[in-house]
Design a binder for these strands. Structure first.
Lengths: 133, 133
DNA sequence: TTGACATATTCCCATATGGGAATGTAATGT
DNA sequence: ACATTACATTCCCATATGGGAATATGTCAA
């Protein structure tokens, strides 16, 4: 089986950079296709096709206005993506804390090096690791 | 040009559902490939290939442990995705507020219907809309 | 109706894909 | 060295893709 269709869900739809640009554009203000074409410097059929994908997954909505068709981002459709990514938040903050703590420990050690108080430590061995990935 | 390569960035990498499952699994606890295969009921080569993609974009990290290779999610790599989606948060809350306000207005109108005080209104016309998308 | 403007769809094609099967490679035990 | 275990990679293939060009559809105006 090939890759999942981009029309299948929000995750696939936003995997395409141009579609992300379109969403960013249309969340501020609804725009006709022609404006999007002009602003993003894309071909009109290309924009229409991207908009089609975005509509199919509910990421944009459209309304007619005379000859124009005005599109705008349906921000709510992005929420599931935000929530999925948010699931990992506690883990990355945890990881960042560990890094911070280690950095602070290093700083303390360095100060000790410059102003040694009592217990001298042996220097870190600095053995280059030869592990293969 | 075809679709962007899945190895190109985090957005493309997480577009694949199986890879999201793998990430969810490996964020809790590092696991060898065989465990992932057993838990997710996928073929081993399939898992290895997904892990390869995830490694290439920095979403997982690996370390050897004897014959096993232990993988774990690098949660930080998901942060950009979270932030991108978060950009739209103010818009979707705004939209939700509008919906809520309209719902409350409807409720108030309905109460008026049941306990009419002074000004009787004409019933809503209920004309079915025939607009094409 | 005809014409012009705006947008959508279709067709073609080069390319990336994910699954399955087969094979390659790495680490350990004997 | 050899067998075994644990992964990784390669090959093949059906399918989805996005871009470009051409064409179709839709809407309004004269």
């Amino acid at each position: 089986m090939p890759r999942a269709a981009t029309t299948s869900d929000v995750f696939n739809a936003v995997a395409e950079p141009r579609r992300r640009e379109i969403l960013t554009l249309l969340v501020v203000k609804e725009l006709p296709v022609g404006e999007i074409v002009a602003i993003l410097r894309l071909d009109q059929p290309s924009v229409s096709k991207h908009l089609r994908v975005l509509r199919d997954v509910g990421l944009v909505q459209a309304r007619r206005n005379g000859r124009h068709k005005l599109y705008r981002t349906n921000a709510q459709a992005i929420q599931p993506l935000h929530e999925w990514a948010g699931t990992f938040e506690r883990y990355w903050t945890h990881q960042l804390n560990r890094i911070k703590e280690r950095a602070e420990a290093t700083m303390r050690a360095r100060e000790e090096d410059q102003n040694p108080r009592n217990s001298p430590r042996n220097p870190s061995p600095r053995i280059p690791s030869k592990e293969k990935q």
